[in-house]
């Protein structure tokens, strides 16, 4: 097991290295001169050379690459070409908002999908099962930004129940914090619940027909026990994977939903950096997100071993 984790960590480091190389190369190929973009048109040659030197762009490309690798391995993910703030400090400032949004969206997503998925898997012909099917079909096709805008339109513009955008940590001001969180997390939560419902439902359907469930029932176990102790645990196996992928993309900042509600998270940080062509921040955020995504993938694989003792990693 330890060996497996070690191997995965080495693999992760390798992919991250690959990724950083690609990001480095690609961002140097982008058309446009970052120095000129910062200085404006009026600046003289001297100021230009000065800034170019400060940004390290006058060195040969392989030297720039070595410097960049050195910085990364020390945990320095780059510096803004505009504000001279480090990417890490900006990420630290923005990450709590994204974590809050992720946690509340996850809660809403699970509260909707787990009961719906279980009931429709166990009683596939019930009214609730039909509703679950309808819900997941609609939810998967629904563009999240449109859902968000429609919520804004009704709850904020027309009814004036909720503030249209903004953020304050629920730890600082719980009431306002939750009011700000409500619409973005419902938007994301529904987007999350739709595919999850589907997965839980098909996982339950598969398991409910299995021999050991029939045995458990034949033993005379009550339904609830069969469902929760025997079926659910096995059905969850496939759900964990999809859940991990969804969690990873949420923590990486759901750029579109964050943008709809002006949520000051990782997603909007990346979007602003792209719009301002601040590639120092872009590369830092991109690496940070891929690191999170890979860590969660690793945790998902380790969770497998916990849920299903048959799985042993070599």
């Amino acid at each position: 097991m330890q060996q497996y984790i070690l191997r995965r960590l080495i693999q992760m480091a390798f992919v991250l290295f690959l990724f950083s190389t690609v990001v480095f190369t690609v961002l140097r190929l982008v058309p446009g001169d970052p120095v000129a973009a910062q200085l404006g048109l009026e600046a003289g040659q001297e100021a230009y050379d000065q800034l170019r030197h400060e940004m390290g762009l006058d060195k040969p490309i392989y030297v720039q690459y070595m410097i960049w690798l050195g910085e990364i391995s020390r945990g320095d993910f780059g510096t803004s070409w505009r504000s001279h703030q480090t990417a890490i400090s900006l990420i630290q400032k923005r990450f709590p908002a994204t974590i809050w949004l992720t946690l509340s969206a996850m809660t809403i997503g699970l509260l909707l999908s787990v009961p719906l998925g279980i009931v429709s898997g166990v009683r596939p012909r019930s009214a609730l099962a039909h509703f679950a099917t309808f819900f997941s079909l609609v939810g998967i096709a629904l563009p999240s930004f449109w859902l968000g805008l429609m919520l804004l339109l009704t709850l904020s513009v027309s009814l004036r129940w909720l503030p249209p955008s903004g953020y304050i940590s629920p730890l600082v001001d719980p009431v306002m914090g939750l009011k700000f969180l409500a619409m973005p997390s419902v938007t994301l939560g529904i987007g999350l619940a739709a595919p999850l419902t589907r997965f839980i439902r098909s996982g339950m359907l598969d398991v409910m027909n299995a021999d050991y469930i029939r045995t458990a029932r034949a033993k005379g176990l009550i339904d609830r026990l069969v469902i929760f102790r025997h079926a659910l645990k096995n059905a969850m196996l496939s759900v964990v994977t999809i859940f991990g992928v969804l969690l990873g993309s949420l923590l990486g900042g759901s750029i579109i939903t964050e943008s709809v509600f002006n949520w000051p998270g990782i997603g909007t940080l990346l979007l602003q950096a792209i719009q301002q062509r601040d590639y120092g921040i872009v590369q830092g955020v991109v690496l940070f997100i891929s690191l999170i995504f890979m860590t969660i993938n690793l945790l998902v694989d380790l969770t497998y071993a916990y849920i299903d003792p048959r799985i042993r990693y070599q």
């Binding site: 990724f19 690609v22 990873g248 993309s249 990486g252 997603g267």
Partner: peptide, 20 residues
């Protein structure tokens, strides 16, 4: 796998940010 090691929408946005 490296391509999959990144959320899909963000990857698309990154590619666009480079290509325009």
């Amino acid at each position: 796998d490296a391509l999959l090691a990144f959320p899909a929408v963000l990857l698309a946005i990154f590619i666009i940010s480079v290509l325009g």
